[in-house]
Nucleic acid binder design. Structure first.
Lengths: 145, 145
DNA sequence: ATTGCTGCAAACATTTTGCAATTAA
DNA sequence: TTAATTGCAAAATGTTTGCAGCAAT
């Protein structure tokens, strides 16, 4: 009934057309992913989906995540030393800063960096399929810690 | 007794001073890593080390790699969908292009990108602990695949 | 009525760990 | 001598998969 639900509805129709069945489990996951403003991992998504669909299995979560990724609906991020984290692909492309102290993920975007990456690849006879830019950061401290 | 061996000797002394014992297994691994001009994974390093030290165990390889990484002697790279790959840290900092068709790793470096990363982090009140920039690329094809 | 999806349990791949024996220092 | 390191086997982690039944279309 909100704007988000309308978007999800449209997405749902698109998926169905692609031959993907929208089961209760998948509907719940789509909802949970649409709501998320963080970058949850599979287990956390499972936890959240269980509210809507008690008994949903972790395998189903993994399988659905794989399917949605294949459909380009979500992105999977493999940050250092952590299980994969997911976000819906509805946002424009961006890279990530990971606060190494808190695990927080901050999104950012630099067209200049993007352009330079493409240049570098082109210079060596390649084209970029996709890329990964992650800044592992720490809150700047005034003086010695 | 080539130049490389001299460098390894110096490294060996430094490690010993840090309380790290240089066993036959570790000497072999240091040698194997110094020789490598690719970015081998643990199992491959194990395979190569077995020539010098038959019977060396994979656990020892992993433990040694962890120890050498902690000493800053090697770098560990976790590229997408693949086991970790290692390289000695003796080279200057660089980023990586991974040929998605062949798995080949090409090193590159862009001071401008580095500078911009630092700027972006600083703007948001962070300092970079380390970063990861990987371009997943494909040989540019003249026309249709 | 199909055929894809589910839950379960078991398999998987990579990496880590406990322990008693060994070895570098 | 003695504390770090080894090999082995077992465990841990995160993810995938085979299968028989179930459910979306």
């Amino acid at each position: 009934m909100t704007k988000l639900d309308k978007r999800t509805e449209r997405l749902t129709r698109a998926l169905r057309n692609a031959g993907v069945r929208i089961t209760r489990q998948r509907a719940a996951l789509l909802h949970v992913i649409a709501q998320a403003d963080d970058h949850p991992e599979a287990v956390e998504l499972h936890r959240r989906a269980e509210i809507d669909v008690p008994g949903i299995s972790l395998s189903t979560v993994y399988r659905t995540l794989t399917a949605l990724e294949a459909q380009g609906v979500i992105h999977r991020h493999q940050f250092e030393g952590a299980p994969a984290r997911f976000e819906h692909a509805a946002t424009e492309h961006h890279d990530h800063m990971i606060d190494v102290d808190t695990g927080d993920v901050i999104e950012f975007r630099s067209d200049r960096i993007e352009r330079m990456q493409a240049e570098i690849a082109a210079e060596m006879g390649y084209e970029i399929v996709h890329h990964r830019l992650e800044l592992y950061v720490q809150k700047k401290k005034a003086d010695g810690a």
